[in-house]
């Protein structure tokens, strides 16, 4: 996995590179928009980690430039600007995710993996959280190395949750992933499917946890959550 980090603070860039290196990523680093544009021309990268305020321009301009050229490379913005408006602005420009400073390396690595796992992105085939493994091409699920039975809808549901592990996935997003537009969705269909999936996972001894956020959606958590609480701001 080759990442390009664009960050003008030398110490922070060093710490991020070191941290991601230990998590198994190869990280190239440049300090400016111009440097990033140059590096992107020369090398192929799987993911772009981008700071917004750079010495020679706005990181968002780089995002817009890439998207104009139909380059769908995953982009994760790392920024000190944490407002809702800033976030919307960043995502509207074409970034895929947004992480507010300060963050911790496990959180950053998890977000990178989630982006790389997206359909069409580099980590396509295997989704792994805790002892649960989902093979997205084969549509199979294994807990602690042993395959378990699951209906296609349960596999779809688990895939949605695994891709956004550690985050709440809203009910409408799950419903639209599970059912095509014309299929009739009863109000309890999602709940029923979720309940069956939970039973299967716990029967197989899975160590991940699926939490209900009443009124909002569901979230799948790894056994030991290391989510930086402040990154929500």
């Amino acid at each position: 996995m080759r990442l390009l980090l664009v960050e003008d603070n030398t110490r922070l860039a060093g710490l991020i590179r070191e941290g991601l290196d230990r998590q198994g990523f190869a990280v190239d680093w440049c300090e400016t928009v111009a440097g990033a544009a140059h590096a992107l021309k020369i090398n192929e990268y799987d993911l772009l980690l981008l700071d917004l305020g750079l010495p020679d321009g706005e990181g968002l301009d780089l995002v817009r430039g890439l998207r104009r050229r139909q380059d769908m490379m995953p982009i994760l913005i790392l920024t000190a600007r944490g407002g809702l408006d800033d976030r919307v602005l960043g995502l509207d420009a074409g970034a895929d995710d947004y992480l507010v400073k300060p963050f911790q390396i496990p959180e950053l690595a998890a977000r990178c993996r989630a982006l790389l796992r997206r359909p069409g992105a580099s980590l396509g085939t295997e989704l792994n959280v805790g002892n649960v493994m989902l093979h997205s091409a084969e549509r199979s699920v294994a807990v602690a190395g042993l395959a378990i039975e699951a209906t296609p809808r349960e596999v779809d549901l688990l895939e949605c949750l695994l891709r956004r592990a550690g985050h709440v996935v809203a009910k409408p997003a799950l419903e639209s992933a599970l059912y095509s537009m014309d299929a009739e969705v009863t109000p309890n269909a999602l709940e029923a499917c979720m309940s069956r999936l939970r039973k299967r996972l716990s029967a197989a001894g899975a160590d991940v946890q699926i939490r209900t956020v009443h009124g909002v959606g569901y979230a799948l958590f790894a056994p030991v959550t290391v989510y930086d609480a402040t990154a929500n701001g």
Binding site: R211, V213, G215, V216, N232
Partner: peptide
């Protein structure tokens, strides 16, 4: 819904429940 989704992991981490 946005804020509850964003804060739920932090609340769950504190072994609390967050409902909307």
């Amino acid at each position: 819904r946005d804020i509850v989704a964003a804060m739920a992991p932090k609340v769950f981490e504190a072994h609390r429940d967050l409902r909307f």
